[in-house]
Amino acid sequence: MHPHLISGSPTTHDDSDAMAPIGNLVNACIQCGTCTASCPNALEMDLTPRKMWRLVILGRLSDVMASRTFILCSDCYTCTLRCPRGLPLTRAMEALKGIAFARRETQHRRSRLFYETFMQTVRRYGRIREMAFMTRYFTAMKNPAEPFRFAPLGLKLMGKGKVEMGGGKSTEIPLAALFEKVAALERTPDKPLGKGG
């Protein structure tokens, strides 16, 4: 894990081989383009998935980070299922998001804050509380217009009593101990998780 994503404290990064483990995941890519043809979001991407995998294998970190391709992966797993080489492409997309968030890439700030504040809420309460999550997210965004994008939906949900406000009956199971243990395990020199999954 990149501990500052959870704790908020900045760290420095050695970027030179940040992408190498992902390159290993997709190294057997034959550039057939089945991923691109299968991707529901390919038309909104600047690089096609096929082209991006090539850049990942070549280690072209800044080109990959500058693109919005991986951030537009919606985890549908169609490419993963169809890849004739059986490569874990959705998992590789997730790992690229992780690198972009750790590098605090400015063009991916909104996604990073969305994921980051989500996990902070889980860490604090054990379950997602929509009000706590959205409040954290809006505060982190520091963009006064952002809440208004969600306001009509928020009001609709509140009207239906569908927003967990954090009142008396809700369960609170803090998970800080688990988060900290994971961070500690990941700081050990032996990388915990390799391929698979």
Partner: peptide, 22 residues
């Protein structure tokens, strides 16, 4: 009893181990 969040799609990009452990 005492179930907690699965990590949704937010945990995995941050850490595989966190996602699996949650």
């Amino acid at each position: 009893d005492g179930w907690t969040c699965c990590g949704a799609s937010a945990a995995a990009p941050i850490s595989d181990l966190l996602s699996l452990s949650l």
